[in-house]
Simulated assay, not measured.
Amino acid sequence: MILNIAERHKLILKKLKKNGFVEVIDLSQEFGVSLVTIRKDLKALEEKKLLFRSHGKAIPSNPYTTEHHVSIKEKINRKEKIRIAVAAGLILKPNDSIIIASGTSVIEFAKNIKPVEGLIVLTASLNTSLILAKNPDIDVIQLGGIIRRSSSSVVGPISEKMLAEFSFTKLFLGVDGIDLEYGLTTTNPMEASLNKEMIKAAQKIIVLADSSKFGKRGFGRICGLEEIDQIITDSGIDPDFKEKLIDLGIDITVVD
């Protein structure tokens, strides 16, 4: 039976919803039409923002994140970020020396820190420094460097050189994307470079990420998932994605 365009589009979207992806060659064979026809179908559906084309296949949405100002990002999934921040605060131990990277998730973490004895915090985030500086029981070290206005944080060789002079017990890292194959990413390559140095300087790597970050990619790659010890996220995480992360040896903490 020969399908018309509307019928093909309906079946493509149904398969996409069920499997999480569709491949051009498989659709061509199943529908008995040319590869060119399927590519035109996928292009038409992409223009309607119903899928995203990628290397001979299509997936439900664009996996690449775009950069937004921190004032915009902090409003996205804020309730989830607060719950994640509270859970992260429970990890702190006496005499911890920690790195807090940049991003809205770690800013919420800073707001929810209950000081423990001997806590030292180094951060790239200007907002985080201002928040923690109000507490006399926390020693704060602000990294120097080039200011990224979109994130109110510092990046660059000065920041990276400073990190080489310290050793920390924990790194609390915010990211723009977590992909099973590509690893952790951010939208800015200079920030990704600084985050790599943070990972080298810390004994335990803890990622704070709401569930919208899973399956996404940013422009700058930070590291592979094998370098991560723990991820704290919300209950919106896909169960299959969670199981795959656990299989990689990552401790997953899910907040309700």
Rank of each mutant, 00 (worst) to 15 (best):
I5S: 11
K79I: 07
K79D: 13
I205T: 09
D256S: 11
Y182N: 12
A110C: 12
G215N: 06
F166S: 09
T66N: 09
Q29D: 10
K79N: 08
D139W: 10
V33I: 13
K75M: 13
P239K: 08
D256H: 09
I76G: 04
E67F: 02
F21L: 14
A192N: 04
G145L: 04
I250D: 10
P60T: 03
E181M: 13
T185H: 05
L208A: 05
I246P: 02
I98E: 00
F219I: 10
N188I: 07
E80G: 06
T253C: 12
G183Y: 13
V116F: 02
S212W: 01
A6H: 12
N188Q: 11
Q230R: 15
L45Q: 08
A124S: 15
L208M: 12
D234F: 02
E108M: 14
D139K: 14
T66F: 11
G103Y: 00
M1F: 08
K79Y: 05
K134S: 14
E197S: 08
R53Q: 13
F214C: 09
V255I: 10
M1Q: 07
I228E: 00
I205A: 03
D256A: 11
E23K: 15
L245K: 03
I231V: 15
K73T: 06
E30T: 08
G20R: 12
V24P: 02
G218P: 03
S153P: 06
M1K: 09
D26G: 04
E80F: 10
T185Y: 04
T128Y: 07
I205P: 01
G144R: 11
K242N: 05
F214Q: 06
V255Q: 07
